[in-house]
C-alpha cells in the first residue's frame, strides 16, 4: 500500500501511522454533552466503500486525510490537515 504525503510525495505505508476516521477533526464544544463526546471519541461507522481517515507521516510529521475505498483498496487522494 502506498500513500501520498503532501509534503514528501508517494511513500510506502510503513512510513505512516494510522489514527482513525476523520471524525477526530470535528471536536465538539467542551459543553456539547455526553452523547456528542461519546460519538466523537468512540462511535464509528464501518463503511464498505469510500471513507476518509487520518494518517501521520512519521518522518516529516505531517498529518493527512486520506480518501480511500475499503472495498477496492483504491486510494483516491490525500491532503494535509494544515
Amino acid at each position: 500500500m502506498r500513500l501520498t504525503c503532501p509534503c514528501c510525495g508517494p511513500r510506502d505505508r510503513r512510513e505512516f501511522t494510522y489514527y482513525g476516521h476523520e471524525t477526530f477533526l470535528h471536536r465538539p464544544a467542551p459543553d456539547a454533552g455526553g452523547q456528542a463526546w461519546d460519538d466523537y471519541l468512540h462511535n464509528r461507522d464501518n463503511p464498505a466503500g469510500p471513507t476518509r481517515d487520518l494518517w501521520y507521516h512519521d518522518p516529516c510529521g505531517t498529518w493527512l486525510v486520506v480518501a480511500r475505498d475499503t472495498v477496492t483498496h483504491a486510494v483516491e487522494g490525500s491532503e494535509a490537515l494544515a
Partner: peptide, 14 residues
C-alpha cells in the same frame, strides 16, 4: 507525544 502535538496543532490550531 510528538505525534499528538502535531495532531493538535495541525487539526485544531493550524
Amino acid at each position: 507525544v510528538m505525534r499528538h502535538m502535531d495532531f493538535v496543532q495541525q487539526a485544531f490550531c493550524a
